[in-house]
Design a protein around this nucleic acid. Structure first.
Lengths: 187, 187
DNA sequence: GTCTATATTCCGATAGAC
DNA sequence: GTCTATCGGAATATAGAC
């Protein structure tokens, strides 16, 4: 069971994430967040020590879920056969409540780097990559594995905003991702 | 022949790009750029009207090269057969002098959006996507086409910093990109 | 828990001498 | 073309009343 946070804390994180996705982390001031919440800046500082702490609140949630996914995947007796289900669960997370957070992270890498998020989250994604890529040593297969994860992420956020020609459903992204990591003889 | 700019203008763009890639656009101040150049802020303002103008100076170069690539691709009599060469030339641009700029753009999307870069550059990338994807109407093929471009971009910049497990050579990325857009019967 | 008021710092940008 | 000096504003953050 998730620990119950105060309503205000939840509302702060929710509104902050909205604005971070709309405008980016740096361009979003605490004044704007406070205004949309119809409170003052000082109120925010009662709940969070710094602006950075708000981001950590958002990220910790995601890191926790990734940990659960990793734990599950590693517990599977036949890793090779768990690949598909790991990708499926990852896609579920991305299309679910972590979609906006993933988009926020993707589009604000310099800020994530400064906050140390790039390190903690990068660890998890590297582990996920290894789990899905299993013990592949072929560089081409490693690249395909990475692209499989990107395919799922692309269904959530646009790349450069432009090549969003058609809507990509999560199901389609998952299908292409599975093709990418599927064993093959040749093309 | 490229128009000859003053040495100082070139050095400003070079140093600014360095810092933009290292720290991000918003976190890089004109003071820092000036300090690394060993001049004062005011000197920068003689060459560029605003901080945004420095970015536009960097981007225009790239947009120009993409235009050339698009022009060439469109002039090919057999578009389907030009795909491979377009991807090859795109990879050459990314691994060449535009690598850092592409990385900068990718990792600073909110700033690009505010500068209108997302629009001008997005147009070019959408056109490139259409050229490579040709007249594909299958959504799965459209996604694969997008991933082909991403594969090439991934060889240049890390994704989340972490899943950079092995070095991805441009040749390998190009090969996987070609596989992705290659016509197929089934998997 | 939320407020008013303020401290502090840094930024982008300009004026004008040389 | 580069400098010194400075302006106006906005940002994060804090102090202290209620």
């Amino acid at each position: 069971m998730v620990v119950r946070r105060s309503d205000t804390k939840e509302r702060i994180e929710q509104v902050a994430l909205e604005l971070f996705v709309e405008q980016g982390y740096e361009k979003t001031s605490l004044r704007e967040i406070a205004e949309r919440l119809e409170v003052t800046k000082a109120a925010l500082y009662y709940h969070y020590r710094t602006k950075e702490d708000i981001v950590h609140g958002l990220i910790d949630d995601l890191v926790g879920s990734l940990d659960e996914l990793l734990e599950w995947g590693r517990a599977q007796p036949r890793p090779a056969q768990a690949r598909e289900e790991v990708l499926r669960r990852f896609a579920t997370l991305v299309e679910g409540r972590f979609g906006p957070i993933m988009q926020f992270i993707q589009q604000n890498m310099p800020a994530m780097k400064e906050l140390g998020v790039k390190h903690s989250l990068g660890e998890k994604l590297a582990a996920l990559f290894q789990l899905v890529g299993a013990d592949e040593h072929d560089p081409a297969m490693q690249l395909r594995t990475r692209l499989a994860l990107v395919a799922i992420l692309l269904s959530n956020a646009p790349m450069f905003g432009a090549p969003q020609v058609a809507d990509v459903s999560t199901d389609l992204a998952l299908q292409v991702a599975l093709e990418l990591v599927a064993p093959r003889e040749s093309f």
